[in-house]
Simulated assay, not measured.
Amino acid sequence: MGKKIFPCFTISLCFIVTLSLLMSKYPVSHGQSLDYNFYARSCPNLLNIVRYGVMLAVRNDTRMAASLLRLHFHDCIVDGCEASVLLDDTDDFKGEKNTVANGDSLRGYEVIDDIKAAIERVCPATVSCADIVALAAREAVLAVRGIFWPVPLGRRDGTTASQEAVNKQIPSPFEPLEKIIEKFTNKGLDFKDVVVLSGAHTLGYSRCLLVKGRLYNFRGSGKPDPALDSSLRSNLQSMCPDAGSSDNNLAPFDRTPYTFDNVYYTSVRNNAGLLQSDHALMGDPRTAALVNRYSTNPSLYPSDFIASMGKLGNVGVLTGQDGEIRQKCGSVN
């Protein structure tokens, strides 16, 4: 089956989608709104700076596209899109970087730091790290010829972080689908967003640590997951051998890890989803119907992805006088 590129990649369709979404602002709980033109006067070159920084990063390491998209998700799903994921440990709190969910796997901090430094040189104390993370995720997807979505701006940065919050709020690939959906709904998202945002696994790789249970000792059986496609299982066992230290070896989520397409959904439908949480999407008739929809009708996915990214980027944002504009993304002012 050939690789399918979404028709939304045409400039005309993306322009229509963008224009329709630009007609409104995103309201937030504090009574203020995120605004697409928030930095139009205070930092008019913001988008160019972010785009250039992301382009260089992805050019040097194509995996960085997936990493920056994942960084945005891990920021927003834990206490909202307020850049707490970027904070280093202090005497007052333990940050989110070294948790089980983030340590040794979450990447892109240095890319955000470099972009922030470039912005500070021309627009000091103006642009939040939270907005940079949101924009960088969009630019990263575009850098691999993916989908455009408009990003409203005006987020402010949080002043603390919590390892406990990460442990409670980040969905785990080993959790039942019902628990993953619950964690999404707690953020104002829903089961459809679970399926749509899982589609971000069309990009990038997973550490073998998250896969080996399915290959050798599924649910304590001492055997592989019987639902895993046998051909994929054989390939993964060569990438992630049980003997030796292969936990940090990498396995692609699908066969086109550098292309934003619908192959992820085709893989999941054919029992070739990499993680348990990927395969679990076929275990609920609601989520399975969406997997089948995006697998067989790739043109339906772009608008749903745009909508879900809009919802994700609006989770728990700080605006107005809440939070601060950090001068460095790794520390509060």
Rank of each mutant, 00 (worst) to 15 (best):
T256Y: 15
T62E: 15
R233N: 08
F73A: 04
L281T: 00
R138E: 13
S24C: 06
L34A: 08
E139A: 11
P257S: 09
C43G: 10
L68P: 08
D322A: 13
A101T: 05
P176A: 08
R59S: 14
E139R: 06
K4I: 13
S295M: 13
S231T: 15
P124I: 08
N270S: 14
L210I: 01
V144W: 07
P302N: 02
K192P: 00
N98M: 07
Y109T: 06
P224S: 12
A200C: 09
S172W: 04
C208L: 04
L215A: 08
T18Q: 14
M1V: 11
K4L: 10
M55H: 13
T202M: 09
D79S: 13
V211M: 01
N297A: 13
L142F: 03
L290W: 09
M64W: 02
D79F: 11
V144S: 07
P302I: 00
M64E: 05
V263M: 14
L135S: 11
D254W: 02
G31D: 07
L153T: 01
G103R: 02
S230Q: 13
K3W: 05
G80E: 07
F191V: 12
R214Y: 01
V195R: 04
A289V: 03
T202E: 10
R269M: 14
S299D: 15
A289C: 05
N167T: 08
T256I: 02
D284Y: 09
C129K: 05
L56H: 07
Y258D: 03
T99M: 04
K311D: 02
A137K: 01
Y26W: 08
T319A: 01
R255H: 07
A161W: 00
H201C: 06
F93P: 02
F191S: 15
P171M: 06
V263T: 13
I306Q: 03
F184R: 09
P302S: 09
S84P: 03
N292D: 13
T296V: 14
W149A: 04
L312M: 12
N314V: 00
G220S: 11
L69A: 13
A307K: 10
K183I: 03
D113N: 14
Y265T: 12
M309W: 03
V166D: 02
R293F: 09
V291M: 10
